[in-house]
Simulated assay, not measured.
Amino acid sequence: GEQYLCLSHPNLILHFDRIIDILKKKNQIEKAIELCKEKLLILKNILGIEYESHLRIARILILIATLYEDKNPREAHQYYEQALEILEHNKNEEIFQICLSTMINFYWKCRMFDRALMCQMKLLNLRRSTLSSNHLDVAYSLRDLARLYRAMNKSNEALQYFDQSLHILQSKYGSEHIDVKKIQKEIIDLKDIVKSLSSNADEDYNNRRCSNAHKAFFIMPQENLTSQSSTSSFDTKTKSSTSDSASAICVII
């Protein structure tokens, strides 16, 4: 087929994807990786200088990355980055969205939230640039972005994007749709968490203030540091000793 079709033809990409998918289902991961790398070598000889920027290469790099996800996450990350670099300079909306979506899932799984957030932002911006502002794909990208911020304990940002997503979904589905109700619940739950954390912080602060305000006081006698003259009379020494022992300092414990 590759002799008669353009190397980036959708049918070629789809056919190769299916072969890799079959191998994955048979748990033949090593064979799938080997096949992908062989295909890269073949395409490198065919494409020459175009190899570094060709969409077909980006797609195969994504496939290899998905195969490495469980086996070697570090290797998967490197292949994703290579694919992303190609797509940043030679954007194909469909492949770019596939790449970003799979990267987001991968980084979520690895709890690499900063990288997942970067990819989610790219995906949202891509969809906003190609779709209407109230498109459902935009709404779900906003929702996913909100969930990422929630996982990063950034509640204000999470609530902001939840609200934007909810606004679009309500306008499309109405108030009774299951996705609308789910987001409404997520917003309520997150607000409850924020309120609870704020209440606990206030309570802890007040407890510490009360604790400081009721600290115990005790009197510590001050040592008589005054040197006595050897010529002082017994009465003078007695008065001085009595006076000195009566002096004290106040200590907070």
Rank of each mutant, 00 (worst) to 15 (best):
Q3C: 06
L5K: 14
C6K: 12
L7I: 06
P10N: 06
P10H: 06
L14D: 13
L14S: 14
R18V: 06
I19E: 15
D21L: 10
D21K: 13
N27G: 05
K31M: 12
K31S: 13
A32Y: 05
A32M: 04
I33G: 07
I33H: 06
E34I: 08
E34T: 11
L35K: 13
L41G: 00
K44R: 15
I49T: 07
S53L: 01
S53R: 11
H54K: 04
R56K: 09
I57V: 15
A58I: 03
R59G: 00
Y68V: 02
E69G: 03
E69V: 05
E69A: 11
E75V: 12
Y79P: 03
Q82K: 15
Q82I: 01
A83Q: 07
H89A: 04
N90M: 02
N90R: 07
E93Y: 12
E94W: 01
I95S: 02
I95D: 07
F96E: 00
L100V: 05
S101E: 12
T102S: 15
T102G: 01
T102M: 04
M103R: 13
M103N: 05
I104T: 08
N105H: 10
Y107D: 00
Y107S: 00
W108Q: 09
C110N: 11
C110Y: 05
C110V: 06
M112H: 12
F113H: 08
F113L: 03
D114V: 03
R115G: 01
L117M: 11
C119K: 10
M121D: 07
L126P: 03
L131R: 13
S132V: 00
S132P: 01
S133I: 06
S133W: 01
N134R: 07
H135M: 02
D137N: 08
V138E: 00
A139Y: 01
Y140M: 11
Y140W: 11
L142P: 02
M152W: 04
S155R: 08
A158V: 03
A158F: 02
L159W: 04
L159H: 07
L159T: 03
Q160T: 11
F162S: 07
D163A: 14
Q164E: 12
Q164W: 00
L166Q: 02
H167T: 08
H167I: 03
I168G: 09
L169H: 02
L169A: 01
K172A: 13
Y173W: 07
S175C: 08
I178Q: 14
I178D: 14
K182E: 11
I183R: 06
K185Q: 14
I187S: 05
I188E: 14
D189C: 00
D189R: 03
L190N: 01
K191E: 13
D192C: 07
D192P: 00
V194E: 14
L197Q: 15
A201W: 07
D204K: 15
N206Q: 15
R208S: 08
C210H: 10
N212E: 14
N212L: 14
N212A: 14
N212S: 13
H214S: 14
H214Y: 13
A216E: 10
F217R: 10
F217C: 08
F218S: 10
F218H: 13
Q222K: 15
N224V: 07
L225Y: 10
T226I: 14
S230A: 10
S233T: 15
K237L: 12
K237P: 02
T238R: 14
T238D: 09
T242Q: 09
T242D: 08
S243F: 11
S243C: 06
D244N: 10
D244K: 11
A246K: 13
V251Q: 08
